Computed example of a mutant assay.
Amino acid sequence: MSATDDGTGGSPKPRLLEVQDLRVEFRTREATANVLNGVGYHVDEGETLAVLGESGSGKSVTAQTVMGILDTPPGFVTGGSIRYRGEELLSAKEERRRELRGENMAMIFQDALSALNPVYTVGFQIAEQFRFRRGMSRKDAMVKAAEMLDMVKIPNAKQRVKEFPHQFSGGMRQRAMIAMSLALDPDLLIADEPTTALDVTVQAQIMDLLDELRRERDMGLILITHDLGVVAEVADRIAVMYAGRVVEESDAESLYKRPAHPYTEGLMESIPRLDQKGEELASIKGLPPNLADIPPGCPFHPRCHRAADECSEKLPELRELRAGRHSACHFAEELISRD
Rank of each mutant, 00 (worst) to 15 (best):
321 L>I: 03
141 A>Q: 12
319 R>L: 01
124 F>L: 07
208 D>F: 10
261 H>M: 02
25 E>P: 11
244 G>P: 13
45 E>W: 02
23 R>C: 15
217 R>P: 01
227 D>Y: 03
191 A>M: 12
12 P>A: 06
297 G>K: 10
239 A>T: 04
235 A>T: 06
169 S>G: 07
85 R>C: 04
128 E>M: 04
145 A>S: 10
258 R>P: 02
185 D>P: 03
254 S>Y: 08
42 H>A: 08
243 A>C: 14
230 V>S: 03
84 Y>M: 05
111 D>A: 13
120 Y>I: 04
43 V>I: 11
271 I>D: 02
298 C>A: 10
144 K>I: 02
120 Y>Q: 08
60 S>Y: 02
194 P>S: 02
13 K>G: 04
91 S>D: 15
133 R>L: 07
295 P>V: 14
31 A>M: 04
299 P>F: 10
252 A>M: 09
142 M>I: 09
51 V>G: 08
190 I>R: 04
326 H>I: 00
59 K>G: 06
323 A>R: 08
229 G>S: 06
108 I>C: 01
43 V>Q: 05
323 A>F: 03
16 L>F: 04
115 A>F: 10
79 G>S: 08
306 R>P: 03
69 I>Y: 09
146 A>K: 08
104 N>C: 13
238 I>L: 12
93 K>C: 11
334 E>N: 10
267 L>G: 05
280 E>D: 01
286 G>M: 03
83 R>S: 12
304 C>K: 09
89 L>M: 15
152 V>Q: 04
57 S>I: 09
118 P>R: 14
43 V>E: 01
215 R>Y: 00
286 G>T: 08
